[in-house]
C-alpha cells in the first residue's frame, strides 16, 4: 500500500491544529505520489473524530479509543503506532513537532529503524542518485530544515528505510479542507491487540493545562526583539509599541536566552511561526532559524545598527539605527498620524 500517514494528536475529542495542517500537507503529498492518505487518532471518546479528519481528504482513519490512552503517554501510543506501521507499511509518516510528536517520533523511529527528521520547514518529493552504490531513487521525501544554529539549510533523505518520518511545527504548514463531504474509511482498532499492561507503567498524577496566554500567531502586527535590543529595559519599549499598534511582541532565541522575553513568545524554527501583516524586527540579525518563523510576513521593517544585518535582505524597510532611539519615535509619530 505504502501510503502517506499522519499521526493526529487529540485531546478532549478535538484534533490538534498542527495535525490538521499535517493532514493538509499529507493530502498534497499523497496526490503527488498517487497514493492514499491514512491517519491515526489515539485517545478517548473519539466518536466525532471522523467528522474532523475526513474533510482533509483522509482515505483511511484508524482510531484507538480507550480511556487509558488519554492524556498521551509514550509507551501505549508507541506500541499502537509501531504495530500499525508494521501492518500498513506507510512510505511517509508525519507528526507534529510538539511535546507529543517529539516524544513519540524518536521512539517509533528507533523501534522501526526508520529515519526521522525533526522540525522540518519544508517537505518536497524528489529523486536521488547514489553514485557510489549506483542506485537511483525516485519519489523520496526531501526533509528540509535549518541546521547548525541556522547557518545552513539541510535537505535530509531516507533512501532505504521506511517510513520516511518527519516532524513539523505548528503553523509551518497551512491547513485547508479538501472536501467537507470527503468519504473515507473508518477502521476501529481493537486496542487490546496493540497495547499491553506494561505500557502503562508511567502514570500521570497531575496536569495543569493552560491555553497559551499570548496569541502572537494571530496578531496582525508582531514586534520581534533580538539580542541587538541590548537590555531588558529597551525590550520593554517593544511592548509599548505593540500596545500602541495593537500587536504582540515576539523574540528571537537569543533574546529569550538573555531572559528578556518569555519562551512562549519565541519566533522561529524552534518557536512559533507567524505571518502578520507587519513584522518589525528590532535588533534581530536574522539567522535562518528565526527567519523560518517570520519570513512570510506581508511587510517587514528591520531596525538594526548593522546596515549589513542578514535580515535586511528580506526587509521592505531598513532603518539603520538603535532600537532605543527608533521605537519611541515610531510610537510618537504613529500617534501623530492617526489623530
Amino acid at each position: 500500500m505504502n501510503n502517506v500517514f499522519v499521526y493526529c494528536e487529540v485531546e478532549g475529542g478535538k484534533i490538534a491544529e498542527v495535525s490538521q495542517e499535517l493532514l493538509t500537507k499529507g493530502r498534497s503529498l499523497a496526490d503527488e505520489l498517487n497514493c492514499k492518505l491514512e491517519a491515526v487518532a489515539i485517545g478517548s471518546g473519539l466518536d466525532n473524530i471522523g467528522q474532523q479528519v475526513f474533510p482533509y481528504g483522509v482515505d483511511v482513519l484508524h482510531t484507538a479509543d480507550d480511556p487509558r490512552l488519554e492524556p498521551f503517554t509514550t509507551l501505549p501510543h508507541t506500541s499502537i503506532v509501531v504495530k500499525l506501521f508494521e501492518e500498513t507499511k506507510p512510505q511517509i509518516a508525519l507528526m507534529g513537532a510538539t511535546s507529543i510528536g517529539r516524544d513519540l517520533g524518536p521512539r517509533v523511529s528507533s523501534a522501526l529503524h526508520s529515519g526521522l527528521t525533526a522540525d522540518c520547514t519544508s517537505l518536497v518529493i524528489g529523486g536521488h542518485e547514489d553514485k557510489k552504490a549506483k542506485k537511483v531513487y525516485e519519489d523520496l521525501l526531501y526533509q528540509i530544515r535549518p541546521a547548525f544554529g541556522g547557518n545552513i539549510i539541510a535537505t535530509i533523505i531516507n533512501p532505504d528505510c521506511r517510513p520516511q518520518m518527519a516532524t513539523v511545527r505548528e503553523g509551518v504548514m497551512k491547513k485547508e479542507i479538501r472536501d467537507v463531504a470527503y468519504e473515507g474509511e473508518l477502521v476501529k482498532l481493537d486496542v487490546a491487540n496493540y497495547v499491553s499492561d506494561e505500557d502503562f507503567v508511567v502514570e500521570i498524577i497531575e496536569r495543569h493545562l493552560e491555553a497559551s496566554k499570548v496569541n502572537i500567531k494571530g496578531a496582525p502586527v508582531v514586534i520581534g526583539g533580538g539580542y541587538g535590543v541590548g537590555s531588558k529595559e529597551t525590550f520593554d519599549l517593544l511592548h509599548e509599541l505593540a500596545e500602541v499598534l495593537g500587536g504582540e511582541v515576539g523574540a528571537s532565541r537569543a533574546a529569550v536566552d538573555a531572559g528578556w522575553c518569555d519562551h512562549e513568545r519565541q519566533i522561529g524554527q524552534t518557536g512559533v511561526t507567524v505571518r502578520p501583516k507587519l513584522y518589525i524586527a528590532c535588533g534581530i540579525s536574522g539567522q535562518v532559524q528565526h527567519r523560518a518563523g517570520m519570513e512570510e510576513s506581508a511587510q517587514i521593517i528591520s531596525i538594526n545598527t548593522d546596515p549589513d544585518a542578514p535580515i535586511n535582505a528580506i526587509a521592505d524597510y531598513v532603518i539603520t539605527g538603535d532600537v532605543a532611539t527608533v521605537v519611541p519615535k515610531m510610537i510618537k509619530f504613529y500617534k501623530q498620524n492617526t489623530k
Binding site: 526508520s114 526533509q143 535549518p146 539549510i153 539541510a154 535537505t155 533523505i157 536574522g286 535586511n312
Partner: peptide
C-alpha cells in the same frame, strides 16, 4: 537511515 542530500549555505536574496 537518514542521509544528508544537500547542504545550502544561507545566502539571502536582497529585496
Amino acid at each position: 537511515p537518514t542521509k544528508v542530500k544537500k547542504i545550502e549555505n544561507v545566502v539571502l536574496q536582497a529585496k
